[in-house]
Amino acid sequence: MLDFIVNHQTCTKCGQCVTDCLATIISLNEDGPFIAPEKEANCYRCQHCLTICPTGSISILGLDPEKSLPLTGDFPNATQMELLIKGRRSIRHYKPENLEPEVVQRLLDVASHAPTGRNDRQLLFTIVDDRDKLAKLREEMMNGLGRIIREKSLPEGREFFADIYKAWEEQGIDTLFRGAPHLLLVSAPSDTATPVQDCLIAMTTFELFAQALGVGTVWDGLLKWAICDLMPEFRSRLGIPENHVFGYAMVFGKPAVHYARTAQRETAQIHRIN
């Protein structure tokens, strides 16, 4: 059941919900907008009808429009967005402390708004939200890595993990997790429309909002390789379902470094089609 409810006292019958319905299942009569029961199965659950209604007269899926944030022109301006994007840096030095739980939850709540292919919205955010837990995981993974190296089982192209382990074993240098207190893994069922892309879009959303909150992040390709190519047993250890595609890994926390200016990149490579 879609639970499509219209407040007829405030509805102006403007028809915007009808025009913007992607599934074209909303109709309008003299009483206002409605969805015929036989068309409900075709709903994309995109909530366009709820969000476009200027008077907040539409509820769907049991959602209260009063609990949505109003879009009143409070978006960051173009200059602010440009600075956020250009000023984003990969952080590889972190303070040895946890983020506040409400900050972590807010990051995840915002990341869950990232678009997904076909509006599947089946992403799984797997998180280590405590630095002591992550330290234990790091110890387990380093021990596993050491075993693989001693057995001379590193696959071709991943020989550099021997140097990562040596730096950890001899100098306590944590190249795998960068000393961060928190870890985020994003995965999606393999039978969704775009599982890998969905994971990357969500993680990019997470990262940009993290920057806005003063939280540092780094895309952790080394950890992804370690799990996918060297120690796949850690998929189950971390609770990633067997039918999921592991999109990517990211560590994050309070940065111990702060950058003063943006980097200067080369002009984008552009191919314009005539």
Rank of each mutant, 00 (worst) to 15 (best):
P101S: 13
R178D: 10
R118S: 08
K152L: 13
Q122K: 12
L183G: 00
A202N: 12
D132V: 01
S187L: 11
G146W: 03
V110Y: 06
G144P: 06
G221E: 02
T205W: 12
Q211R: 13
M141Y: 04
I91L: 10
D109Q: 03
F177V: 04
V110Q: 08
I164W: 07
D163W: 12
D109L: 05
L176K: 01
L208P: 03
C199V: 11
I127W: 06
G221D: 01
L230I: 05
A226F: 03
L108Q: 10
T175G: 14
Q197C: 15
K86A: 14
K95M: 07
P96H: 04
D132C: 01
N98G: 10
L123I: 15
D129W: 02
M231A: 03
K86N: 13
M141P: 00
A188S: 15
P155E: 07
T204R: 07
I201C: 13
G157P: 04
I85Q: 08
D120S: 07
E170M: 13
E100T: 02
T217G: 03
S187K: 08
T192G: 10
P115V: 14
G87L: 05
L137N: 01
L99I: 02
I127N: 04
Q197I: 15
F125Q: 06
F177R: 02
G216A: 12
S90L: 09
I164Y: 12
P181N: 03
R150H: 08
T126A: 06
K224W: 14
G172V: 14
S190V: 11
I85P: 03
V104Y: 03
E169V: 08
S153E: 09
